[in-house]
């Protein structure tokens, strides 16, 4: 058992490091001095059962929650010290349930991704619009670009917020259960587009994921969280195995290698007892 063994060997080329992080909601502690790091240019999955602190960790990594102890290091500088727009040029965040309070068009929402690059009162430059159009293209939203976001389905909204995050052109993309509102076809579609972006632009993705099979198909690296502890992290080959999954989720399963893709495949068994 690799108990509490988190790998620090990637420090040299990690896009995002969280060092000795503590966090509590009021008196309810979530993390006590945990260390996590995410290698650059990879698809990093954060896995763990409900209530283990995945979304909270993502909120800390995005700078929305300030940890009570420790700091998040991005490209060698402390996240808390960055100015809001400078931080937004480095990190984009996609929420689990997109909020669309007012009837903006899809194109307007995606163009909001350019905010970190704009001076107050300045409009979007042709380069900004190019980034917006590219993001619309990648997520196949050209047809919908003039539609009102308040009239879209859950899956379409998810594509819109992901396009907005891509238009932000950040080095790091944080995704909170990006496929939770999607059927399997759209889930595969979205995740392959994210993967494509990683291979084209070398961005770093950190995604909270619920579906272990999707994580197995798309992630390069994963972090298992349980009850606020970083149980283990590392490349999929090393840590995505029967022992870790059984320990973290308290389930029985087999992990095999798919002959064609060489990626792990998980077979979940009915729980006995």
């Amino acid at each position: 058992m690799n108990k509490n063994e988190t790998d620090h060997d990637c420090k040299a080329d990690c896009a995002l490091n969280a060092r000795v992080i503590s966090f509590a909601y009021g008196r309810h502690p979530i993390f006590d001095k945990i260390n996590v790091s995410f290698p650059r240019g990879k698809f990093n999955a954060i896995l763990g059962p409900n209530g283990c602190g995945k979304t909270t960790l993502l909120s800390i990594l995005s700078g929305f929650f300030a940890p009570s102890n420790g700091e998040v290091i991005i490209d060698g500088s402390s996240l808390g010290r960055l100015d809001a727009k400078a931080r937004a040029r480095l990190i984009a965040y996609v929420p689990q349930t997109p909020v669309m309070a007012f009837p903006f068009t899809v194109r307007e929402i995606v163009s909001m991704g350019r905010h970190p690059y704009l001076a107050r009162f300045a409009g979007l430059s042709p380069q900004d619009w190019q980034a917006v159009d590219e993001a619309l293209d990648i997520l196949d939203l050209n047809e919908l670009s003039g539609s009102l976001v308040t009239e879209l389905s859950g899956g379409e909204r998810q594509r819109v917020v992901l396009a907005r995050a891509l238009a932000q052109e950040s080095e790091i993309l944080l995704l909170d259960e990006p496929t939770s509102n999607l059927d399997i076809r759209h889930a595969l579609d979205i995740l392959s587009r994210v993967r494509k972006r990683i291979s084209e632009r070398g961005i770093t993705v950190v995604a909270v994921m619920h579906d272990l099979n999707l994580a197995a198909m798309f992630a390069d690296h994963c972090l298992f969280l349980n009850k606020g502890k970083a149980v283990c992290s590392g490349e999929m080959d090393k840590v995505f195995n029967r022992e870790n999954i059984a320990q973290v989720y308290d389930i029985n399963c087999e992990v095999e290698k798919d002959q064609e893709s060489g990626r792990p495949v998980i077979k979940i068994k009915e729980r006995v007892g």
Partner: peptide
């Protein structure tokens, strides 16, 4: 008018607006 664009971004919810650089 000074905060017009920030107000637009707030329509995405506090978390998303924050991640786009709005205080």
């Amino acid at each position: 008018l000074f905060y017009a664009r920030e107000l637009d971004l707030l329509a995405l919810g506090a978390r998303s607006a924050h991640s786009l650089g709005v205080n």
